[in-house]
């Protein structure tokens, strides 16, 4: 393997590790809001690392830019979807989990 292949492999593995951590957060965190934090942030960094890893293997400038474009579109979609899910959860009265009183509650504000 050449140096570039090694760099590519390292970034791909780091990216996979962030995806794994995001998924662990999704499973372990207590409510919808904290889970959205885990997904939006860890997975986007994971995807960024995977895109960088693949950039080392891209065979044309257009292919490289397409990878970056994929990442930007995924970022925009992820940020927007997080907002929509969190907003809907709030509107339905799902109160955020709190460290001092664990358990699912409802809040009365709109």
């Amino acid at each position: 393997m050449s140096g570039l292949d090694w760099l590519s492999a390292i970034f791909l593995l780091v990216g996979a590790a962030f995806f794994l951590a995001g998924t662990v957060g999704l499973l372990r965190f207590p409510d919808v809001y904290t889970r959205l934090h885990a997904l939006a942030k860890a997975d986007n960094l994971g995807l960024g690392c995977i895109v960088i890893g693949l950039l080392f293997q891209a065979d044309s400038l257009a292919a490289a830019l397409k990878l970056v474009l994929v990442w930007l579109l995924a970022l925009a979609a992820s940020a927007t979807v997080s907002f929509l899910v969190a907003h809907r959860a709030w509107r339905r009265g799902i109160a955020p989990w709190r460290a001092d009183e664990p358990g699912i509650r409802r809040h009365d504000e709109s």
Partner: peptide, 19 residues
């Protein structure tokens, strides 16, 4: 942000203080 939340998810004991 990614490093922080990954660290929180992987801690043996969750230490969350959301609000």
């Amino acid at each position: 942000g990614g490093v922080q939340v990954a660290g929180m998810a992987l801690r043996p004991r969750l230490d969350l203080h959301p609000g």
